[in-house]
Design a protein around this nucleic acid. Sequence first.
DNA 1: CCCATTCTTGACTATTCGTTCCAAAAAGCG
DNA 2: CGCTTTTTGGAACGAATAGTCAAGAATGGG
Lengths: 193, 193
Amino acid sequence: MSRHKEFDRDQALQKAMEVFWSRGYQAASIGDLVKQMGINRQSLYDTFGDKHALYLLALDRYRQVEGQRLFELLERPGSVKQSLRQLFDEVVEQALGDRERRGCFIGNATSEMAGHCKETASRTCNNMTTVEEAFHRALLRGKQEGEINGVRDPRAAARFFHCALQGLMMMAKARQDRKVLNDVVKVTLSVLD
Amino acid sequence: MSRHKEFDRDQALQKAMEVFWSRGYQAASIGDLVKQMGINRQSLYDTFGDKHALYLLALDRYRQVEGQRLFELLERPGSVKQSLRQLFDEVVEQALGDRERRGCFIGNATSEMAGHCKETASRTCNNMTTVEEAFHRALLRGKQEGEINGVRDPRAAARFFHCALQGLMMMAKARQDRKVLNDVVKVTLSVLD
DNA sequence: CCCATTCTTGACTATTCGTTCCAAAAAGCG
DNA sequence: CGCTTTTTGGAACGAATAGTCAAGAATGGG
């Protein structure tokens, strides 16, 4: 039939995601993307459409990967409290280890784009409900198993935990201070008791 | 000596702040700024330096105004719990009423700039400690006056409240849903009991 | 009134942006 | 091997960008 692509689509998309993640939409130029993705300009347009479409694909990829990670951690059998603690501790560790201070791609997208771009807005909104559901299921299980007693309204608590998670990642971007972040996690998890 | 400026510096800076607040740094063009500020291009450069300097001035203005509001509310004599509830309720109301979904300018600046711009980073970091201090003082007073009993570590709680505040404003940007935000506020304030 | 100083104006520059065009290269099929 | 189809590379496009320049207009001191 014809010639094959010389690059791996998923690998290129991964690179694009990293660029958008660390620079945001506006500050990431096509030149940056082409260079980091290791593909040609025209190939980028042929394969992914335009810059905006590529951004949405990168955002979707991030959502899928991070959503998977969150889902697996919270659905893991055993102590829900322990899973939640691990989740927040991992976020702190990741934030402290990221010298680029990229924060959360979804949070960045919400901040930069959600107010002006419908497609981004629908994705970040969709993500909120997904994460909320994951927390909700975990909290329900914790209550059923008698582990969690301090939570009266699991739905509200789920929303609260998502808020705390987003706030934590934003704070880490402003001040990479382990003590501060640990304090936040400590108080956040105290609502379970 | 010479001719006077035809425009009011503070008023122009206020307009610039609104532009940067709603569009961010990159997406706000000098053309936008000139139009919204109602002044001439050259006057902008003569008075404020360049785009980046103007951004920092706008950010400082926002910090000063919002900081003042927060400070006054939390230093107000009387119930600290009530002040905190009012603070969070007002944030919810403001977020729901903002059809542009601008969110928090400081949060936006943190997300967009803190990772790449030292000047912005130092400002957002500075802001974090200021807000933390305001919460801390209020919580200490609440404890002294015997109103707040659920808080063991006021420093950690202060950091937590700031985190919740930032998270709340970010969530509101993703999903303008009164019920969701009220749930978050409800659980957040529950750590006081 | 006149001159020095400052502010205003809009044209201008040089660069960078996202995107497209076109020719050359490569690969499968007969 | 040749022919078709697709990818690739780089040049080129117009629009938009941040910032500058020079000339004119206004102001206040002498």
